[in-house]
Simulated assay, not measured.
Amino acid sequence: MSAADQGLRHATVGSPAAGVRGGAPGLPWRAGIGLKPEHFREVLATRPDIGFFEVHAENYMVDGGPFHHFLARVREHYALSLHGVGLSIGGSDPLDESHLDRLAALIERYQPASFSEHLAWSSHGEVFYNDLLPVPYDRQTLARVCEHIDRVQERLGLRMLLENPSTYLEFEASTMSETAFLREVMKRTGCGLLLDVNNVHVSCTNHGRDAMAYLRELPLGAVGEVHLAGFARDQDAAGAPLLIDSHGSPVDEAVWGLFAHVIAQLGAVPTLLERDNDVPALQTLLAEAGRAEATMGARAEPRRCGLYWGGA
């Protein structure tokens, strides 16, 4: 790992919101799973040996109710990763400030160890789409995405992670690669990278690219969290393989192989097992998390990945 990559692990004095909320603890360098309503009571009753839980921020943007009741109790015992799906970081419109306010209130309430969002857009004007849509990789988009990330980090007072997308089409207007775009975003904003290894495999398969070459071009030193998930197999109109980022099946062996390569480069890193559809029994998810920890060889490691400005 280069010195430049190592420097991206944590915010620096020159980062846009340096000095805010310094010293907050980060995610354990272990595996975590998504916290699902069907598992709320079992998690509290059995207190599984897991590194952390992750929830989607938009599911908790209300004042009360059963979701908050259970999350508050789980948060007493586990670190929390907060994953956003609705900021529309890549959108052409200004960020929704009321959405940011609700997000800030959630962060104040639960003090998550990590906050992440997607390199995608999901709204335009008054229309909201139930999807994470791709962006062209050009200078205009780069400036807009960086402006949005700067605003998020300033408003929330923390260093966010940006997730690499899963894509099924590309823009002819793009003037740079996805990896070059991500490197430049992180250089300009100081944000970190949420490396979704499944998305790497899905996108590279769909576009006929080499996933290992893609990983070599990423600033891996900026990785603050890794996501692993399953995909669905389909084919396009020409009969070529088409992978869909479905989060509805176990992690594929090809994705496990890429994950092992990433860990060989980085060592242990907070790693989430995502399952949002066809959610299995809690023990099934814990078994996948156990495989991730065996790959990392870091079950008892005390190191943490600090993502707040100035975090350790």
Rank of each mutant, 00 (worst) to 15 (best):
F181Y: 08
L182Y: 05
R183G: 13
R183L: 06
E184V: 02
M186L: 14
M186F: 02
K187Y: 04
R188E: 15
T189G: 08
G190T: 06
C191G: 09
G192I: 12
G192N: 10
G192P: 11
L193S: 05
L193I: 07
L194V: 01
L194Q: 03
L194T: 01
D196S: 14
D196M: 07
V197I: 15
N198E: 03
V200L: 11
V202K: 02
V202R: 03
S203A: 14
C204P: 09
C204N: 13
C204Y: 03
T205F: 10
N206F: 08
G208S: 02
R209I: 01
D210Q: 11
A211N: 05
A211Q: 08
A211M: 04
M212P: 00
A213P: 06
Y214E: 13
Y214Q: 06
R216A: 15
E217F: 04
E217T: 06
E217I: 03
L218Q: 10
P219D: 06
G221T: 01
A222C: 00
V223L: 13
V223Q: 11
G224Q: 10
G224P: 02
G224A: 12
E225N: 02
V226Y: 06
H227G: 06
H227E: 06
L228D: 11
L228H: 00
L228E: 12
L228M: 09
A229F: 00
A232M: 15
A232Q: 15
R233T: 09
R233F: 01
D234E: 13
Q235Y: 13
D236H: 05
A237L: 14
A237W: 10
A238F: 11
G239N: 11
A240D: 13
A240E: 14
P241N: 04
L243C: 03
